[in-house]
Amino acid sequence: MSGLDLVPQATTPTTRKDYVPANEVRWCPGCGDYSILATFQSVLPELGIPRENIVVVSGIGCSSRFPYYVDTYGVHSIHGRAPAIASGLAISRPDLSVFVVSGDGDALSIGGNHLIHALRRNMNLTILLLNNQIYGLTKGQYSPTSPLGSISKSSPFGSPDYPFDPVTLALGCDATFVARALDTDRAGLSSAILAGARHEGASLIEVYQNCMIFNDGAFAASKGPDANVLPLVDGEPLVWGEFGLVRNEYGQLVSARVAEVGIDAIVKHDPHRVDATQAFALSRLKDSVGASAPVPMGIFRDVERPSYEHVLRDQAASAHMDGDPTGHLQALLVGPDPWIVK
């Protein structure tokens, strides 16, 4: 089962250059979006599908300029509504690979409703949520992912809003594919996008994206040689630095020194488990491990469940009537109780 099962294969391979349009990219110099765009363009050829069968749909915000910078089909729509528009497109065109590119304000504030429903329905969409924890395009207001107390133009006394964690939210929607990646981590981001695009159903990929201008360094702790990051590797023990995750008497994931408990005591990562409990616990490490908790990066969950479109196609196939469609339609119009006037 793959999300690309009904998308035709490319007759001639595409290259990164095929996806770079002539128009100029207009994000602020140094914006994290540049590296995400470059990775995205270089990953698309690996999907092995024709360029014309890829559509990028976005809403409003800095990240939502994305479609203009990818030379495929694309729609730059209205604030928050990209998942709804992409859903209609994906339902009616199973031969397309549909991406949604959104931001923390677009996807989680004004468009929160559409995001959660696209995830629970398992729409065949790959959703890149570029999270910079700030409203950039409107010049610096706190967003639904800004930490409590964040100072911004609209929160001079500190943000009073408790933030969403996008991964926790997606898992709460029973999303079948949830991942997190870093704008500057080309390898991690590439593998998340590839796996997400191939996944049947909704894939949510949260990308930590640095906003140089209004929220510079928001993810500094996840970058560089001292990055406090927990790599999520399928089948491997959950370790970072000298530490690993073990279960305590309450079943919580807590940190332990690997040297003290031994590597066999460390919990292994399994994103394919239908029971999302461990994926959820990984998204809440700050609750169980505390302030020193690392940020998990990689695929939290990747399970199989037929997509919405798949279920719909099965229904359509069972309702299909052989013979002349015009005749069927005419008979429907006439109905069961006609009378004839001569």
């Binding site: 729509s77 709804a84 528009i85 859903s87 209609g88 497109l89 339902i91 309702a319 069927h328």
Partner: peptide
């Protein structure tokens, strides 16, 4: 009317109703 090739999508709200219709129209 699925047997007649009609697709219906009961959306999460009015906005998604029209949004999905716009997406479908974009697809032809």
């Amino acid at each position: 009317r699925k047997g007649y090739g009609v697709t219906t999508f009961q959306a999460e709200d009015e906005i998604a109703g029209v949004g999905s219709a716009i997406g479908a129209s974009y697809g032809g």
